[in-house]
């Protein structure tokens, strides 16, 4: 029934507003915090009125962490760069391996294919610490501990299953007839994969890549255990704000804003690919 009254409209609007406020408030508060000093943040009662300062951002970018006691050296920008490098490389490797594998799983049902695909997914179920402890020993023995290569490899535990399972679904959604039509037109299976399957699964690959990127970006425990200071990403680097003389809330907030910005920008940019219809109306249902 679409007999909506004015009262219903008002109720609906206010309910929506409440939901938006509930979810957006923490983010809003963090942004406010990033422009405040520790003193104004810790005021009781908290207030939204303050004199904005850029000192938090200045400190992070120049690498000077000013606490009540002393000025500490921090390397947040290096962490940020590490995050970017590790996430981008991990997703790139995972895409290079995962997309062809996803295609194989989607199109060629062979004995045990479901089992292999499920085993890959089950990596996501294992508690990371359980994997990490033996892995650390092995990595130290073969010299992969504290290398970018080793980290990217371990990050595949996060990225590969994700990409494999999401992209596989997108490949399965492409009507096999479209690929058959291209084969019958005289093209090899590889040309069909490149010219038909890949472009049509494009939005799905973008979505999976983005998701994998966010998961890799947010990872904490692998880098904490396997990387030393100069290779740590922002998630680990943020620990430096917990200092002997207290927690630097303002700079944590600024750090969060800085580290969220790239993923947020990426998500906003990729959104149009995510919503774009997959089959684009070529196949009559």
């Amino acid at each position: 029934m679409e007999h909506t009254s004015t009262l219903e409209k008002v109720l609906r609007a206010s309910a929506l507003t409440a939901v938006v406020i509930f979810f957006m408030f923490p983010i809003f508060w963090i942004i406010l915090m990033s422009f405040q000093t520790n003193e104004t943040i810790l005021r009781v009662p908290p207030s939204m009125i303050f004199e904005p300062t850029l000192s938090n951002y200045r400190g992070i970018i120049t690498g000077q962490l000013e606490t009540n006691a002393a000025t500490l050296e921090i390397n947040f920008m290096r962490n940020l760069w590490n995050s970017v490098f590790l996430s981008v490389s991990s997703v790139a490797v995972a895409l290079a391996l995962g997309v062809p594998a996803a295609y194989a799983f989607a199109r060629h049902k062979f004995r045990g294919s479901e089992d292999i695909a499920f085993t890959l997914l089950s990596f996501r179920f294992a508690p990371p610490l359980l994997v990490l402890l033996p892995l650390t020993l092995y990595f130290q023995q073969i010299g992969l501990a504290d290398t970018y290569f080793g980290l990217v490899w371990v990050y595949q535990l996060i990225c590969l299953p994700l990409i494999l399972w999401i992209v596989r679904g997108y490949f399965e959604d492409i009507s096999p007839d479209i690929e058959y039509a291209y084969r019958i037109a005289g093209h090899s299976w590889f040309a069909t994969f490149r010219k038909i399957a890949l472009p049509l699964a494009g939005p799905g690959i973008a979505a999976a890549g983005l998701l994998a990127f966010i998961f890799a970006w947010n990872n904490f425990i692998f880098a904490l255990v396997l990387a030393s200071a100069d290779k740590q990403p922002v998630t680990v680097g943020a620990l430096a704000f917990i200092t002997a003389s207290g927690i630097q809330y303002g700079q944590i907030a600024a750090g969060i804003v800085l580290s969220v910005a790239p993923t947020l920008a990426l998500a906003l940019y990729a959104q149009r690919y995510l919503v774009e219809g997959l089959s684009l109306g070529a196949v009559k249902g």
Binding site: A181, S188, I196, V283
Partner: peptide, 20 residues
């Protein structure tokens, strides 16, 4: 013989056009 080497033409019920 592979499909691409059989030299047949085919039209599909669901048209199977390449959407892109």
């Amino acid at each position: 013989v592979e499909a691409e080497d059989r030299g047949v033409g085919m039209a599909f019920q669901n048209f199977a056009l390449f959407p892109h």
